[in-house]
Amino acid sequence: MSSDPKAPLGLRIAATGGLLLLHLPLLLIVVYAFTTEEKSFQFPPPGFTTKWFGIAWSERPDIWPPLFLSLKVAAIATCLALVLGTFAAAGLSRARFFGRETVSLLFVLPIALPGIITGISLRSAFDIMGLDFSTWTIVLGHATFCIVVVYNNAIARFRRLGGNLIEASMDLGANGLQTLYYVVLPQIGTALLAGGMLAFALSFDEVIVTTFTAGQQSTLPIWMLSELIRPRQRPVTNVVAVFVIVTTMVPILLAYYLTREGEHTGGSSK
């Protein structure tokens, strides 16, 4: 670490150590996916085997429907959130009216309030309206908190875009739609893609709200939760957990790659 001679040793140790601790638990899961011990979480594992991957793949049909449901819900919720979040960001970046702050607070509210409130609220609303639980009730909940993820990514880019490039485009003869196509979309495209990726990852992983809106259906996180509470084959759960880690890693890395120049969306991005 020669490039930052100024950092005091204590700070360096605290920072690096803290970061390592963030990752060790995830590594541990990978280790446990190979253990031969089925009934307990014994450490160190008495032996290593790859058989659980095969078992998860071929002998546990109960994994597949939740996986597909999760993918389906995440895809639909992401699409909805992309449209609504982009609209919200575009509208608010143009808006000059009094109360702008309040409106932006409104979009952040679903992640600022505990998830359980969103969950039970939606559930009681479904009850009142006599809505049966379905894939769509899950989507409804997911889209609500995914909007803010897209919104946060988009608004940061809209701010950077400013009015200037849009004016330049109109000045050169492009009307509003042409400006949208040639200037605005290319400028915000990567931010939207990144927001969409993160929204997908968020939805794919969500369990707190989903418990209240899924009814009898299981998404992958709900399946995992039930395995945690009443384990059948612990290593299989580990295998699925490793799969989930890898699956969510891809969109996160992509989202980072897409937005790396300039702004990093802060803690509110989730």
Binding site: E167, A168, D171, A174, N175, Q187
Partner: peptide
């Protein structure tokens, strides 16, 4: 609107489109 006036502007901060090359900017 600006796109219906045969008038062009050189902006103070130039407002060059960052996602285009110089050639594409000029030909816009």
């Amino acid at each position: 609107p600006p796109y219906k006036r045969n008038v062009n502007t050189v902006f103070q901060d130039y407002a060059l489109f960052p996602h285009m090359t110089v050639g594409e900017n000029v030909a816009y």
